[in-house]
Nucleic acid binder design. Structure first.
Lengths: 188, 188
DNA sequence: CAAAAGTGTGTACGTCTGTACATCACCGAC
DNA sequence: GTCGGTGATGTACAGACGTACACACTTTTG
């Protein structure tokens, strides 16, 4: 009978590969992401990639999984810290305007994920999950209808910031959020 | 002196290539878009692509230019048909929920464009232009601040529809649009 | 100790890629 | 007719790609 399994020499090597893959995706785009670029970035031999992963698609899926996981955490943190409706509105504005969620690099990665998800079932599922997570975080404070509307704002507005390059007008964002919340939830 | 220039055998061949490129992008994603796939789809010889375009990047740029042009037209049509504020709100809801703007295939193409734009300056500029066009179309009916908020909704909401697969709740969309407009423009 | 088993790596291979370019088909000028 | 000259194409090629796999190394087993 086989005894205790041996321990990997470098247990977090797999994680390093995934992290490196995400960086390559952000810097070059999925369309120019290759085994060799990732291996170089992660400082591991080329063979490691095929040893730990079943092809490039598996690496990309792991990278995007990491991305959505990272963002979900911050997303939930910001929203769960709010206790009143007013605070929740400010939290939403913070998500839209702030630099914590959706840094420029994360936005780039998110675009790549959305685009790639349309051609890869596993990543598409990841996108759906991410949608549900964000909606659940909002659902603590708002009705389902309001969640859908706010979610659209949270996704759409940072996209514009990404193209314009200029920071968003926080007052305007907050006013819009409050307008939606007041209307759909009923004033106060 | 050289006489009249000869006429191309197939003057709209270049257009066919661009159209085919966009289809390949939608079906396979930019990351799997190749000269050969495009040529096959357009039913032109491989050599035509290098004859008409300076590399794959140029083809992709032309394809995305075609996309944003197509969408701009419909976008403007829907918005310019409105004469009152109420009609303009319904036009915005139509853009978000309707099947004319942002068919599933167009949404996929748009994702590819946004993702690719982060790695190609020409396409990035295209994204900025598209942003300005949509904002100008809205500016006919609304203030600049309102345009920004509505634009975020118009971009963000169809993204969700894309992932959920289910059609949007038109009543909810319309109510949200009105909420934003009423608050930012002042009630009536 | 030797042997076996498992972990990790460097290299080599077949395929596919973008692109250059010699070549062809066609048309107007003479 | 012959002869450029231009639009267009099929092919060939160098390089990059994903991936398989023989091999080396380390640890456990006997």
């Amino acid at each position: 009978m086989a005894g205790r399994r041996q321990v990997a020499n470098d247990p977090d090597r797999k994680d390093r590969i995934v992290a490196a893959a995400l960086e390559v995706i952000v810097d070059h785009g999925v369309h120019k992401t290759t085994h060799r670029l990732i291996a170089e970035r992660a400082d591991v031999p080329l063979g490691s990639l095929t040893y730990y992963f079943d092809g490039l698609a598996a690496i990309l899926e792991a990278a995007f999984r990491r991305l959505s996981s990272t963002m979900s955490v911050h997303y939930r943190q910001v929203l769960s810290a709010a206790t009143t409706r007013a605070e929740a509105c400010e939290a939403v504005a913070e998500l839209i305007c702030g630099t914590g969620y959706a840094t420029p690099r994360e936005m780039t990665a998110l675009f790549e994920m959305y685009a790639y998800g349309n051609h890869d079932d596993a990543v598409r599922a990841l996108g759906r999950d991410w949608l549900l997570v964000s909606r659940e975080s909002l659902a603590v404070h708002f009705s389902e209808a309001t969640c859908r509307a706010l979610d659209a704002l949270i996704e759409g507005w940072p996209m514009h910031r990404n193209f314009e390059g200029a920071p968003l007008d926080r007052e305007l964002v907050l006013a819009t959020v409050r307008a939606v919340v007041d209307r759909l939830e009923g004033e106060e």
